[in-house]
């Protein structure tokens, strides 16, 4: 009992070491856990993109950088793999969050489109980054939905958009079949401007920690689907019939969550044992 009481006072550095060791295990000894369950939000996102007609375009807003690449990278990879498999044309933008978004997106997209035989300008286009005011992206998103050519007169390679064949089909953001926004926490202005005023169907790919805030919009139908962190990416890959980064990182994430649970359990056992010891002493 005395030993159990000490569990209440473990030095946090031992917890850090234990967490590191636990999360390294799946990298040292590759393990697989069954994907099994696919959430309704991921399934809805997959079905929306899968239902894209051949004459329509999907817009991807990739506004993540190094901080959230642990989850957003896998999400973008999974969705781009789906688009390439179905030969769906897409446009990549980066609206207002981080100027590093286009670089990170290009590194993911370029190898996949080359393998799929996509031609730049005809099958896919990257428009680049547009600065907005933090907390006030509404006017920019409104312009995006209403007048995409006006917001992006040139693409990331400085080519006028009127010279790009793919852009002839998309003069307004609202002309797209759907928009997928991958970032740490997609702004609500996408819902209040792009969806509410222009009817653009939205899929969000966000960090796991931010996902609870978007469930009301899933229920109301304002958000068509959502990829929740790495798990969402793994589920999307399972629906697409691939096994990419999301599936690979699901096991370390599981071990990490296990470490959090183990820490909570240890703390409670220690607290309970200490109280019993104190009552026995009294």
């Amino acid at each position: 009992m005395r030993f159990l009481a000490h569990l209440h006072r473990i030095d946090r550095r031992w917890l850090y070491v234990a967490t590191l060791v636990l999360m390294l295990v799946p990298f040292v000894k590759p393990l697989t856990l069954p994907a099994g369950h696919v959430s309704r939000t991921t399934r809805a996102a997959f079905e929306l993109i899968d239902s894209c007609p051949p004459d329509k375009v999907v817009i991807i807003d990739s506004s993540w950088d190094a901080g959230s690449q642990a989850e957003n990278r896998a999400q973008l990879e999974a969705v781009v793999a789906h688009l390439c498999r179905r030969k769906i044309k897409f446009i990549v933008t980066s609206l207002g969050v981080t100027p590093l978004g286009p670089d990170f997106a290009r590194d993911i997209i370029r190898p996949q489109v080359e393998r799929a035989g996509y031609e730049y300008g005809r099958d896919w286009v990257q428009l680049g980054f547009v600065q907005g005011v933090a907390g006030a992206l509404g006017p920019v998103i409104d312009r995006f939905s209403r007048d995409l050519w006006g917001l992006y007169p040139r693409d990331i390679h400085n080519t006028p958009v009127e010279q790009l064949p793919l852009m002839q089909a998309v003069r307004r953001g609202a002309d797209a079949h759907a928009l997928c926004c991958f970032t740490y926490a997609p702004v609500y202005e996408w819902i209040s401007f792009a969806n509410a005023q222009y009817g653009l169907r939205l899929v969000f790919g966000c960090m796991t920690i931010m996902c609870p805030a978007y469930y009301p919009y899933i229920d109301s139908g304002q958000l068509a689907g959502m990829l929740v962190g790495n798990v969402g990416a793994a589920e999307y890959e399972a629906l697409n019939g691939t096994a990419g980064r999301g599936t690979r990182l699901g096991v370390p994430a599981a071990f990490g969550n296990g470490a959090v649970i183990a820490a909570a359990v240890l703390g409670n056992i220690g607290l309970w044992a200490e109280r019993r010891a104190r009552r026995a002493a009294a």
Binding site: L15, M23, A263, W272
Partner: peptide, 15 residues
């Protein structure tokens, strides 16, 4: 991730 484990150890108590 490490801060989360430490925070869970300290704050998730059945009190």
């Amino acid at each position: 991730a490490f801060y989360l484990v430490s925070a869970a150890y300290r704050s998730f108590r059945f009190q």
